[in-house]
Design a protein around this nucleic acid. Sequence first.
DNA 1: AAGTTAATTAACTTATTAGTTTAATATATC
DNA 2: GATATATTAAACTAATAAGTTAATTAACTT
Lengths: 108, 108
Amino acid sequence: MTLSALADPTRRAILARLTTGEASVSELAEPFDMSLVAVSKHLKVLEKAGLISKGREAQWRPCRLETKPLMQVDDWLESYRQFWNENLDRLEAYAAALQRGGADDRNK
Amino acid sequence: MTLSALADPTRRAILARLTTGEASVSELAEPFDMSLVAVSKHLKVLEKAGLISKGREAQWRPCRLETKPLMQVDDWLESYRQFWNENLDRLEAYAAALQRGGADDRNK
DNA sequence: AAGTTAATTAACTTATTAGTTTAATATATC
DNA sequence: GATATATTAAACTAATAAGTTAATTAACTT
């Protein structure tokens, strides 16, 4: 669910905004060229995904960023980091071999 | 586009499979309880997002994982890593303060 | 050249998503 | 208590997504 919540650019912009601190629904909506209702729905999606939480202060619902799901994405990436590091290692080894005197297919 | 491609569990499973090496479309489709055509479409989505590339060997289209978009996701996460580390720092500082003799609000 | 295997394209269905406008619910203020 | 502000809920529309089956393309095997 986290990834599909993150798939929308408006929602990602909202999250980015929240790294600078809490904000109310209408504050969060302000930069966007869409209705407040639409933004409110985006916030609901983010909340269901656990990416934000809402407090209550009078008639405002201050939203704040929750990091747990993002940390899980970070964890999920781990196996792929291993994958691309292996690839980079292979590439470096190949480049080094070339440097040492072009010991590639063309010399066989 | 990367994140919405990653939002689907079937597609994530396909990527995970591809960390173990190249595979043809039908090999990739085999574990799933859906038509080959459906998997072929998922592969098209992954390909458009740059997450895989397809070669051609006779009638097979060997797919392999491409890491660039995943590395970009990793980069995108960076600002959030900073955010949650700051939060952890604050938490640790608070815990340390408590340890040093409960210098919290209740003592003012 | 007939048949088999691998994959894609086309046409369609159903469900979900992102947005809209209008109405409702709280809370605060005059 | 009336009114203004902040937010959510309801009802609807249009676009996109995920799946299906049937047909097509391409390459290999007899």
